[in-house]
């Protein structure tokens, strides 16, 4: 049984350590905040200019001036601080943010990340992702192991334009957990009843 989106987010939440300042990307990474383990206190950064991001509001407390980097309405906490975009990226680029958890289109066996465009097809932009992967302490990626056509997304080298080179530390897919090491991707954990043979068939990157 492979993991679903929520199980991937729950597994990623185990990467969080007490006292960390963490940036969560758009999509499945946002779900990680639902699974922060008991006794672990983390402060979430939103790169549009907020530390201490709270949960979604109610209809009564919704505020157009208070959104996260995914443009979703959110709330503030006792610890919240607001700042401008240059300060926000000073703390990212300056290495103050301990971890970023991001989505990906492709990751290579050397830790290259591609997640911002498909030439001539999908032009979204990198947002803050290039700054995050260049600046934060540790980069964890959550992604489906294969694309909608069943093709590998963990590759020897990325085919799409890169977000960063040699930047990914750990990858969590619906099939397991992998670390970027010297000779390829090291299998750290497998989802229940997933075998190494299953992985080999759907992974182009070298597995060690």
């Amino acid at each position: 049984m492979t993991w679903d989106r929520n199980q991937m987010a729950e597994r990623a939440a185990k990467e969080l350590k007490d006292g960390m300042y963490v940036n969560l990307g758009i999509g499945i990474p946002t779900l990680v905040s639902n699974y922060i383990p008991d006794g672990v206190d983390v402060t979430l950064q939103s790169e549009n200019g907020m530390l201490g991001m709270g949960p979604f509001p109610t209809d009564e407390t919704i505020d157009a001036d208070l959104i996260n980097a995914g443009k979703q309405t959110i709330t503030e906490l006792d610890r919240t601080a607001y700042f401008d975009s240059a300060d926000s990226f000073a703390m990212i680029r300056g290495g103050k943010i301990n971890m970023a958890i991001l989505g990906a289109m492709e990751v290579s066996e050397t830790g290259d990340l591609a997640n911002w465009m498909i030439p001539n097809k999908l032009i979204k932009g990198m947002g803050g992702a290039m700054d995050l992967v260049a600046g934060v302490g540790r980069v964890v990626v959550i992604m489906d192991h294969v694309n909608k056509k069943g093709e590998a997304k963990l590759l020897k080298s990325c085919t799409l334009p890169l977000t960063g080179k040699n930047v990914v530390d750990r990858i969590i897919t619906n099939y397991g957990v992998f670390d970027v090491v010297k000779d390829g991707l090291k299998v750290i954990e497998l989802a229940d009843n997933v075998s190494r043979d299953d992985l080999a068939a759907i992974t182009q990157a070298n597995l060690v």
């Binding site: 680029r93 803050g128 700054d131």
Partner: peptide, 29 residues
């Protein structure tokens, strides 16, 4: 990149002609 755009504006406004950053190294940027 978002942080580069913010810093470009900050630098431009502060009379700083340019700055070096790791953001975007190894990419088309």
């Amino acid at each position: 990149p978002q942080g580069t755009l913010a810093e470009r504006m900050r630098a431009g406004g502060a009379g700083i002609a340019g700055f070096y950053t790791k953001t975007g190294v190894g990419t088309v940027i």
